[in-house]
């Protein structure tokens, strides 16, 4: 069953079509990768789904409900949370408090919030840093915190925007394991990542955006052979736009 349906969504900035009539479906429990060259509109699409930008056209259906144009906090309460491409923890709050924000204000609000926040930190492997100020974290830890915070809200659909980019190999492998275990918990994931090996290794299916349009939507091995995708990444041919 489709958890998220993106129907003909466009997002314009002035005259620029950052996202142009994209249709996309994400099924319950699926892990879908979203790729595309720089400026393809991936993050913009994320932001539309998360409610940061209202769609200029089209609909975002989540769980059978239209969520396009809702405020981000309302979208979060429906069960969609996103991480930010540029990590932005609340610098003067502790790691635990950062997660607590999502736990207390997010989608699922049951049980002792502190307990739940600790469990989330345990889960992502940040428990030992719980009482450190977020500004004092290293980049890998900040990225982990970004994920933990989003998980704290109890999302059904998690939008991960480049949580692996910029990490060294060991860290990247750890984060990939983390993403797999999030998926095993039944959370549906839509993720943007540039590293092909990562995205090919993790995704059930891959959607490719180019110039704001969807040019491919298939399992990893098919996408990697798709001439349109290869062309988009090499970017040499004269585009007939």
């Amino acid at each position: 069953m489709a958890l998220l349906e993106v129907q003909g969504v466009s997002r314009y900035f002035g005259g620029l079509r950052a996202v142009d009539h994209v249709d996309m479906v994400v099924g319950e429990g699926e892990l879908v990768g979203l790729i595309g060259p720089n400026g393809a509109g991936k993050t913009t699409l994320f932001r539309v789904i998360a409610g940061v930008y209202p769609p200029s056209a089209g609909q975002v259906i989540f769980n059978g409900e239209s969520v396009g144009g809702l405020h981000p906090n309302r979208v979060c309460h429906k069960g969609i949370t996103s991480t930010h491409q540029v990590v932005r923890p609340f610098p003067a709050l502790t790691v635990l408090e950062n997660v607590l924000v999502g736990v207390q204000y997010g989608n699922v609000r049951s049980g002792d919030p502190r307990q739940r926040a600790r469990e989330v930190l345990e889960f992502v492997g940040l428990a030992h840093r719980a009482d450190v100020l977020a500004r004092n974290l290293t980049l890998p830890d900040r990225k982990r915190l970004e994920v933990a915070r989003a998980l704290g809200t109890g999302p059904k659909l998690l939008l991960l925007d480049e949580v692996i980019a910029g990490l060294n190999q060991t860290e990247a492998a750890r984060t990939m394991d983390l993403i797999r275990s999030i998926k095993r918990q039944g959370v549906t994931i839509l993720m943007i990542e540039h590293n092909m090996r990562v995205i090919m290794g993790l995704s059930d299916r891959i959607v490719v955006l180019h110039h704001g349009e969807k040019i491919a939507d298939a399992p990893p091995e098919q996408v990697s052979r798709d001439p349109k995708v290869i062309e988009a990444y090499l970017g040499e041919s004269p585009v007939s736009a």
């Binding site: 314009y12 900035f13 005259g15 620029l16 079509r17 200029s56």
Partner: peptide, 22 residues
């Protein structure tokens, strides 16, 4: 007429040429 600093986009008035998303 859009002030130059404007961040929240209005409805598009012209079709994009080439659609080069920077």
């Amino acid at each position: 007429r859009m002030p130059v600093w404007r961040t929240k986009p209005a409805r598009p008035t012209t079709a994009p040429t080439g659609g080069k998303a920077a």
